[in-house]
Nucleic acid binder design. Structure first.
Lengths: 242, 242
DNA sequence: CAGTGGTCTAGACCACCAG
DNA sequence: TGGTGGTCTAGACCACTGA
């Protein structure tokens, strides 16, 4: 179950092990998981290592602790996973749907004023412009236009964007994605949008404009999306920080 | 600076120490804090204890780490205020507009199935139902229906809801508001809604459904709002959490 | 009382990054 | 190469819970 010689950290292996048990129901809600000492003994690892795994699951909200009593499985909020910054692909997978795309155009163009401003670039700086129809379970879900600074997100190909752009940015380019700010509106689609989304006139769309930032604050992505209102609902959680 | 004999955990004392330095500007944005070994040496504590303090600050987003380089102070966002859970009143004030309300109805009714489920109550439990037209700078902005468990949010009057419901809940009832989950959709308004919002047919609205929770997880509020799409844009920021 | 999580120590080896 | 964070160990004492 736990391989001490694996390059994968032990605490992470244990984390996955517990996560699996929670998800497949071997551990029920409000049921105590084995004690830290017990887990350490079972897997022949240090208690501190066990605690690191449990800490992460507590932070994620999957477990909660009670002093003197034990560690227990939390009731899962359905929405819980949906709150992070995710790509369309990740979003659909979390919703249990199969994402796909139809590429409409993919080119390098000079940034117009609006895009330049959003991405904090000079006008006419070369940027990638990628237009796609986004599908979920083969049905049109959204029309999406992505703008990326060509100097920052280098070596982009059709293959890459058909796989996962975020994976490429994080793993191949080694950039750290930090956060995004979004504007969400209701609007009525244009003629061309209606056709691509296969909707009747009069049906509204959810228009989302997102600018995403790296760890150092550099904006690396502007995405404008029009989601079919009958198929898509934006879900998130927010904290009262006062 | 650090008192080992204090009942306050050492890692927490260090946390507060670093937090203060970040907030008063002794440590600047993107500046490296002393290394873990250095902090351990300085305060004569174990490196693991130092890590516990730093871990917490990283989780909170105040610091970020870079392998082989060091631990750095994160920039604080201007947007930060906008992302929090706010009432309509707070929201409008942040946008620089003057909020007001027109009360349509205010009564105690038995919870129907849908409301009961959202608020985790039994059907027919008494709840407040408050319908209001929400105005910003005297113009209709949204139509809002709020549901509150009568047993939890006691002693509600028209005066209170005309002031600030959240203030009342937090300061008079002493309840701690923690978080909310929202669903945001685009839709078309019903006849009655159009009239109250003073909009033409065919104009879409932004429909927001929110359930808010107290610290202990109890849902205390269900709000359904229809915002005029031409006047309202929902803005928020989200983190890439992994 | 025995068992739990909470805190803490004083080491260790690793991979990564800079000069 | 020397310094950084990432991981891990094998102990320890504490306060708290429940029987």
């Amino acid at each position: 179950m736990i391989d001490k010689n694996s390059p994968i950290p032990i605490y992470f292996q244990l984390e996955e092990h517990l996560r699996a048990q929670i998800e497949n129901g071997s551990l029920e809600v409000d049921e105590a998981i084995p004690s830290e000492r017990e887990l350490a003994e079972t897997f022949q690892i240090s208690r501190m290592t066990v605690r690191q795994a449990i800490n992460n699951l507590v932070t994620e909200g999957l477990l909660y602790r009670q002093k003197g009593k034990g560690t227990f499985v939390n009731k899962k909020k359905v929405e819980q996973k949906l709150q992070g910054l995710t790509s369309f692909t990740e979003d659909m997978l979390e919703r249990g749907m199969k994402p796909s795309s139809k590429l409409i155009s993919f080119e390098i163009i000079p940034a117009d004023k609006q895009v330049a401003q959003a991405l904090n670039l000079n006008e006419n700086t070369p940027i990638y412009e990628i237009k796609r129809v986004r599908l979920a379970d083969q049905l049109p879900m959204a029309l999406e236009t992505t703008f990326l600074p060509a100097n920052l997100v280098k070596g982009l190909t059709e293959d890459i964007i058909n796989q996962s752009l975020y994976q490429y940015i994080e793993h191949h380019l080694g950039l750290i994605i930090n956060e995004a700010s979004q504007e969400i509106e209701a609007s009525t689609p244009k003629e061309t949008e209606m056709k691509l989304l296969e909707i009747e006139s009069s049906a509204p769309v959810l228009f989302i404009k997102r600018v995403s930032y790296l760890q150092d604050g550099t904006p690396f992505e502007l995405v404008k999306s029009s989601y079919r209102a009958d198929r898509y609902k934006f879900v998130h959680t927010m904290k009262r920080s006062f």
